[in-house]
């Protein structure tokens, strides 16, 4: 039971990092990306490759993963941010589909469908972090750091620029904001921070393959953000915890037919999301409908 809870805690922390970093662009820049699992995966493959071939030190693995994801995100951001919101969603979906193919086929780097196995545990100044307990602490500390960084950014002049662009692009332009540069920067930061979760995930699981980084993961991360509360500090973490605890919690309800638990879970997700969006579109942590207001200004 303790191992189960620690494992859940690690996964919640890592997915919370993903949700927090996606919320950074969704909630503050108004950029809806369905490619977040790509940066999660890039971080995981890059971190794993470095750990397998070069060094498992966290100070080598994580920065490499961040750099790779940041570089890849530029490929998405540079062309895609020239178009308006809804087209970015389509472009990110394209990248997601493309990336899954590359993850599955580029055997030399990703191990193909079989993935990468035997990834060594992460090493911090000579200490290997492999027990669930110590890894849980590491992932919590990392989550706290990512939250602190995004919080600092959101409250800075950069964050105000992001929010200004989200609220009115034409007004932001009229006040001298270089929208393409600011949006691109936010996507690169978001991808690089998401890659931290990826590299830690690879080291924790010691095995990764493409199935962890497909479209349904991107959708799951987006659902975490929306359900928890887009544009709130705490929402993505609440959303991540809820969506990861729910499957386990359901299996404890003995009156449910255990063989159908997967379908029941899907039905509950769907229903829950629809009901939430109708009655509480700001998410669990977000403002209620009465307060969100549709002012024309």
């Amino acid at each position: 039971m303790e191992a189960y809870l620690l494992n859940l805690g690690v996964l919640i922390s890592l997915y919370a990092i993903l949700a927090v970093t996606l919320n950074f662009i969704m909630g503050y820049a108004g950029i809806y990306s369905l490619a977040h699992a790509v940066f999660f995966g890039t971080g995981a493959y890059a971190g794993a490759s470095v750990a397998l071939n070069f060094s498992a030190s966290i100070f080598v693995m994580v920065p490499t993963a961040m750099l790779c994801a940041a570089a890849l995100s530029l490929l998405l951001a540079l062309p895609a941010l020239r178009v308006r919101g809804e087209y970015f969603v389509a472009a990110s979906l394209g990248l997601q589909v493309l990336a899954v193919t590359v993850f599955a086929e580029w055997k030399a780097v990703t191990g193909g469908i079989g993935g990468l196995i035997g990834i060594p545990p992460v090493d911090i100044a000579g200490f290997e972090i492999y027990s669930p307990g110590s890894f849980f602490i590491l992932s919590l500390v990392t989550l706290a750091a990512v939250v602190a960084i995004t919080r600092l950014l959101v409250r800075s002049s950069f964050g105000r620029s992001l929010k200004a662009i989200r609220d009115s692009e034409s007004a932001a332009l009229a006040f001298g904001k270089n929208i393409a540069l600011i949006k691109t920067t936010s996507v690169v930061i978001s991808a690089a921070l998401a890659a931290i979760a990826g590299s830690l995930y690879a080291a924790y699981m010691s095995f990764i393959n493409v199935e962890s980084f497909m479209l349904d993961t991107s959708v799951l991360i987006m659902a975490m953000v929306i359900i928890g509360g887009t544009g709130t500090q705490l929402g993505p973490i609440v959303g991540a915890a809820l969506l990861l605890i729910l499957p386990g919690a359901l299996s404890y309800l003995s009156f449910l037919p255990q063989t159908e638990i997967g379908s029941i879970q899907q039905i509950l997700y769907g229903l829950g999301m629809a009901v939430l969006m109708i009655f509480r579109p700001g998410g669990i942590v977000g403002r209620g409908r009465a307060e969100t207001g549709e002012g024309e200004a």
């Binding site: 002049s157 929010k163 200004a164 989200r166 609220d167 007004a171 024309e296």
Partner: peptide
């Protein structure tokens, strides 16, 4: 039609 930064505070509108 003003195009204020509507979800930002009054002060943030000026700062930005």
């Amino acid at each position: 039609d003003l195009r204020l930064f509507s979800e930002m505070t009054v002060e943030e509108n000026i700062l930005t």
